[in-house]
Design a protein around this nucleic acid. Structure first.
Length: 584
DNA sequence: GCCTCATCGA
């Protein structure tokens, strides 16, 4: 059945191509006949047209067309004047006829090659379709187009064709990555019913899916399920679980569990580079450098083949403990034993240098990596641009943004936003707005952070009206304002003494379903102080203390200042004592 | 062939 449907489909396509060819031929010839009407009014030409149009069913007829064409060609050559036009049109017809003949030949060959009852060709067609379908499913899964992938899976199942285990694992991985664990589990259920039976990789994928969702209990549960179903967990299963526990900071639990698993499952290799790397990374991140170093030495002691990832973990580990000199030492060691520092190694160094404020050094590493043939990525640029903006060098940050565009890397919104914010902070409103426009022009949509940066900039420049217009724009066409948007506007209104505006904004914010934070409440306390409603201000402060909000010194200072201004020093001291109690 | 480790984050 497979080969029959493929054959008829291909044959239909060819017939359609052929039919289109005739239509095209007709239209070309009609046009030519119109242009060269003077030269093509003779009877043989019309016969030629008629034959060309209808005489296409067999080779005899095609050859008659060819003969006719040659005849007309000869006829035209005999024309006494304007021979060029005649030659040209004949040549066109010759080409068109050759195309027609070629199409007919291809159809004939195709039909001959299709043997309707040949079993070998049936199998071949079936395999071709099967391979095509599973390849498409896998590709769709990698692209995250799971709905279409699953539809194709359904279509195969309906034809009683079962995709292989690997294709099923691709689908499960896709669902796990998109957090649709219910669908992933359903598919495993289908595999248990229809086949193929889930293998170790299937369970590993599912276990990792649950670990990514932080559901380690279910992951461990699946670990038992696979063991009970007779599938022995492998080293990868262990590493997935160890990694998940380490990410939660439970290094010791991970190690104990690993020992237990290794004891129970009799895994031959008692040590493994990836397991050691995971444990070493977690120890560094927990601040336990000694333990991390023990894992590192163990790798060499057991003669495990070390890789670039392990080196990057060590480099990052020492960067975390702000020991950049030792980190550099390991970069050199890495080079010495033949591993080239990769994008991770360079990004780790650049990130650390930027955090430490050594921006020039970070920029130097940026030039080194490019010379070493490692090209900066979105993360490299993000760290350098953020570092430069944070240290006030927005101009240079913008140059890096231009470099990104030159390198055809589309900067993500965060990068545009830190530059907009950078220009806003130094009061360059015009540049901030022009960067926003450029961002839109290259196809990156402004988000809430973009608007907040612009609102902040407008407020800083004293353009409170423009700041409000931006918020209106957000409400009308999105992105929606957030708590920061309201806090910025409330703060500005409060500083200008526009009490009604503060209260209006607060009201709008509450109606919008936002929960006020410590900044909102501080602005309200400031507002009550300006109005002289000190009782309300103190009530709010008491309320703040009962809530689990992180209250800083600012609201206390505002109230103290107000009482001092009113020369009510006893009250001011009372507030000061409250603050001391709070901080004791 | 499918499943394991490392960098960034207003």
């Amino acid at each position: 059945m497979q080969s029959v449907s493929v054959a008829s489909l291909e044959s239909n396509i060819l017939l359609r191509i052929l039919s289109n060819s005739f239509q095209t031929l007709d239209s070309i010839k009609d046009r030519i006949s119109h242009i060269f009407a003077d030269f093509f009014s003779s009877k043989p030409f019309h016969i030629h047209l008629i034959r060309t149009r209808y005489g296409y069913m067999d080779d005899t007829k095609t050859s008659s067309i060819r003969n006719q064409c040659e005849l007309s060609e000869n006829d035209n050559r005999r024309k006494p004047s304007d021979g060029d036009k005649g030659d040209c049109s004949v040549a066109v017809f010759n080409v068109l006829d050759a195309m027609l003949k070629d199409t007919l030949d291809r159809l004939k060959t195709m039909r001959q090659s299709i043997s309707w009852d040949h079993i070998g060709s049936k199998r071949c067609a079936f395999e071709t379709k099967y391979n095509r379908d599973v390849t498409i499913i896998r590709a769709l899964c990698l692209e995250g187009k799971l709905g279409v992938a699953l539809s194709l899976w359904h279509m195969m199942i309906q034809r009683s064709v079962i995709p292989d285990i690997i294709t099923h694992n691709y689908l499960i991985k896709g669902f796990c990555k998109s957090g649709e664990l219910d669908k992933a589990e359903w598919l495993v259920g289908e595999m248990l019913i229809k086949g193929p039976s889930p293998n170790c990789a299937t369970y590993n994928t599912l276990i990792k899916g649950y670990c990514l969702l932080n559901n380690i209990d279910r992951a461990l549960n699946l670990f038992s399920t696979m063991t009970n179903s007779g599938i022995t967990p492998n080293r990868i299963t262990c590493n997935i679980i160890v990694h998940a526990l380490c990410k939660k900071g439970l290094v010791e639990d991970a190690r104990k569990l690993l020992e237990k698993i290794l004891g129970d499952t009799h895994l031959k290799d008692t040590s493994n580079l990836i397991t050691s790397t995971i444990l070493m990374d977690a120890s560094f991140k927990n601040g336990d450098i000694n333990q991390a170093f023990t894992y590192w030495e163990e790798i060499f002691h057991r003669s495990l083949p070390v890789d670039a990832v392990a080196y990057n973990v060590v480099i990052h580990g020492f960067c975390l403990s702000r020991d950049i000199v030792i980190a550099y030492k390991y970069v050199c060691e890495m080079l010495k034993i033949g591993f080239h520092p990769d994008i991770f190694s360079y990004n780790i160094l650049i990130g650390t240098l930027c955090k430490e404020g050594w921006i020039d050094e970070a920029c130097y590493i940026y030039t080194v990596m490019s010379k070493m043939g490692v090209f900066p990525d979105q993360i490299t640029y993000k760290m350098i641009i953020q570092g430069l903006c944070f240290h006030g060098n927005v101009m240079k940050a913008y140059e890096f943004l231009c470099d990104m565009l030159d390198d055809s890397i589309l900067p993500e919104p965060l990068i545009w936003n830190v530059i907009i914010d950078g220009y806003g902070r130094c009061g360059n409103m015009q540049k901030a707005l022009s960067i926003r426009d450029q961002m839109i022009a290259v196809g990156v949509l402004p988000n809430t952070f973009t608007y907040n940066a612009l609102i902040h900039a407008q407020i800083k420049c004293g353009n409170i009206f423009e700041a409000h217009s931006l918020k209106k724009e957000m409400l009308l066409s999105g992105p929606f304002p957030d708590l920061v948007t309201y806090n910025l506007l409330m703060g500005a209104a409060c500083n200008l003494g526009y009490i009604n505006s503060v209260l209006q904004l607060y009201d709008e914010m509450i109606r919008g379903g936002y929960y006020p934070d410590i900044i909102t409440c501080t602005e309200l306390i400031k507002c009550y102080c300006i109005q002289g409603k000190l009782e309300q201000a103190e009530d709010l402060l008491v309320k703040l203390q009962t809530l689990s909000l992180q209250v800083d010194h600012v609201p206390y200072r505002i109230l103290m200042k107000k009482y001092c201004k009113m020369r009510e020093l006893d009250k001011a001291f009372e507030i000061y004592q409250k603050w001391l109690v709070r901080n004791s």
